[in-house]
C-alpha cells in the first residue's frame, strides 16, 4: 500500500490564458473510491481528460502504477488498464449492445504492429461479453442496437464497456446524472460491487448524497485548484468548500 495506484503531481492544464487546472496534486490508492467534486467549471472533467490521455497536461507529472503516463494517447492508457465512461454517453449507436462490449474486450486482440486478421465472432469472446453484460444487468438487451437504449441503460453499457477492458482503475464521469431515483441506487450498487472485485475508482459526481455515500475520500476542485481533500465528513464541514459552493456569506447549514 506504500505506492499509490495513481498519482498526480502539480498538474497544470492551460487553454490559452485559461488555467483549467492549476498545479493540482492528489493520490489514489489501490482499492479506493476517490471522488472528484466541485462547482461547474472547476476543472473536474479536464482533470479526467489528462488522466485518460485525451489532453497532454501543460506541466506536471502523472504516474499510474509507478509509470509516467502523462502525454500518452487514450488507447495506450486503455491498454495500461484505465477504463473510463463519458459524462455525455458515447455508445457505438449502430452496433449491438454485445458488439459494443466486444470492442472493449478486444484490447489484447487488435495486434501490436500488424492489424489483426483473427475473427472476433468466436464463442469465447461472445460468452465473456455476455457475462459482463449480465454483471451490469443488460443481458436481455444484448442483441439490440445500442442507439435505441434509454439513458439509464446507456450509462450501464458505458460501465460494461469500461469493465470489459479489465481495468485496474475506472474513471466514472458523472455516471449518475440524468438517472431516476431507483436507477441511481442500482448504479451505486454496481460501483460498490466493482470496487469489491478489486478495481479502484475515480469518479466525478454532482449529486452530493451519492458522492458522500460512495466515496472513501473526496478531492474538491474550484477554479482549477485543489481546495480541499479528505474524508466526506471533513469535507462536508469544511468552511472553504461551503463557500465555494454557496458563495460568501453562505451560512453554517450547508449540508
Amino acid at each position: 500500500m506504500d505506492e499509490p495506484l495513481l498519482s498526480l503531481r502539480e498538474i497544470s492544464m492551460h487553454f490559452g490564458g485559461l488555467k483549467a487546472l492549476d498545479r493540482v496534486s492528489f493520490d489514489l490508492h489501490e482499492g479506493e473510491i476517490l471522488g472528484l467534486i466541485g462547482p461547474n467549471g472547476a476543472g473536474k472533467t479536464t482533470c479526467f481528460n489528462t488522466v485518460s490521455g485525451v489532453y497532454r497536461p501543460t506541466s506536471g507529472e502523472i504516474r499510474f502504477r509507478g509509470k509516467r503516463t502523462d502525454g500518452l494517447p487514450p488507447h495506450r492508457m486503455a491498454a495500461l488498464g484505465i477504463g473510463r465512461t463519458f459524462q455525455i454517453v458515447r455508445p457505438f449507436p449502430n452496433l449491438t449492445v454485445l458488439e459494443n462490449v466486444i470492442v472493449a474486450s478486444g484490447l489484447s486482440c487488435y495486434g501490436r504492429l500488424i492489424p489483426s486478421c483473427r475473427s472476433w465472432k468466436g464463442r469465447k469472446t461472445r460468452e465473456e461479453a455476455l457475462e459482463i453484460l449480465a454483471r451490469v444487468g443488460l443481458e436481455i438487451q444484448a442483441g439490440q442496437k445500442a442507439g435505441l437504449l434509454p439513458l439509464g441503460n446507456l450509462r450501464r453499457l458505458e460501465l460494461a464497456r469500461a469493465l470489459a477492458l479489465k481495468p485496474h482503475l475506472l474513471l466514472l464521469d458523472e455516471s449518475f446524472s440524468g438517472l431516476r431515483h431507483e436507477e441511481i441506487a442500482q448504479q451505486e450498487e454496481l460501483v460498490r460491487k466493482t470496487r469489491e472485485s478489486g478495481i479502484s475508482i475515480l469518479l466525478i459526481e454532482h449529486n452530493m448524497r451519492v458522492a458522500m455515500g460512495l466515496c472513501d475520500r473526496l478531492v474538491v476542485l474550484d477554479h482549477g485548484r485543489k481546495l480541499a481533500e479528505g474524508k466526506p465528513e471533513a469535507i462536508r464541514n469544511n468552511p472553504e468548500v461551503i463557500r465555494a459552493y454557496l458563495g460568501k456569506g453562505g451560512s453554517a447549514n450547508a449540508s
Binding site: 494517447p73 488507447h75 486503455a78 463519458f86 458515447r90 455508445p91 457505438f92 449507436p93 470489459a164
Partner: peptide
Amino acid sequence: EDETAASSMGV
C-alpha cells in the same frame, strides 16, 4: 461510430 469512445477502449 465514435472515435473518442473507440480510442478510450484501446483502438
